[in-house]
């Protein structure tokens, strides 16, 4: 069952798109992205849901911001150390390599979301920032509504959370 938030991220999508369609767009893109980059077949076990704020507490969290003139978005990918080898296929991986690989997953995921007409018609093209890594249990709690869910490889999860909102107007000194 999906949660809904009338003033949340879902309300930004075209009314013609159902919750299920939006959810599937985000989750299937994660599966496609991990397959394309890592050659890993992953699955989802539960539909991705809209939440009032993203909450993820993983040992490794990669965050990537993106923005246009009108919108700003943030993507979080979370993965625990024990799950990494199930996505990358090797055990002896250090934190910088984790960051490198999942940073690239984040980069490509954002691009692949923009490739969906349903997304780009609503939000336009978002330009991505350089990804950053938070590690060891630092929770990620932005106060904006988003969609989140997990993909699994060999029963080990990787978390994806994506939030987008209209930019708030700012006063700029001349």
């Amino acid at each position: 069952m999906f949660s809904t938030h009338d003033d949340g991220m879902y309300s930004l999508f075209a009314p013609s798109m159902t919750l299920n369609e939006v959810s599937t767009m985000f989750s299937s893109t994660a599966i496609e992205c991990v397959d394309a980059l890592l050659g890993v077949n992953s699955i989802i076990k539960a539909p991705w849901v809209f939440v009032p704020r993203l909450e993820a507490e993983y040992e490794n969290i990669i965050i990537m911001g993106s923005a246009s003139n009108q919108f700003q978005a943030i993507l979080a990918i979370g993965i625990n150390d024990d799950a990494i080898n199930h996505f990358i296929g090797k055990n002896d991986i250090d934190r910088s390599e984790t960051f490198d690989i999942f940073g690239e997953v984040a980069n490509n995921y954002c691009a692949m979301i923009i490739d969906h007409n349903e997304f780009v018609e609503q939000f336009g093209i978002l330009n991505q920032s350089i990804p950053v890594l938070y590690s060891k249990g630092i929770p990620f709690l932005p106060f904006i509504s988003g969609i989140e869910g997990k993909i699994y490889s060999n029963n080990q999860p990787a978390y994806f959370g994506f939030a987008i909102q209209k930019k708030r107007s700012a006063t700029v000194n001349p």
Binding site: C33, A36, L37, N107, N108, C110, A111, M112, I114, D115, V120, G124, I125, N127, Q128
Partner: peptide, 24 residues
């Protein structure tokens, strides 16, 4: 992985090609 006008901009600056990520 940059989408939108980036490809046209790069080509107008003189890039000889533009390949979009992900690299499948």
């Amino acid at each position: 992985a940059v989408r939108g006008n980036a490809m046209l901009e790069c080509m107008s600056f003189g890039a000889k090609g533009y390949i979009e990520k992900p690299l499948k």
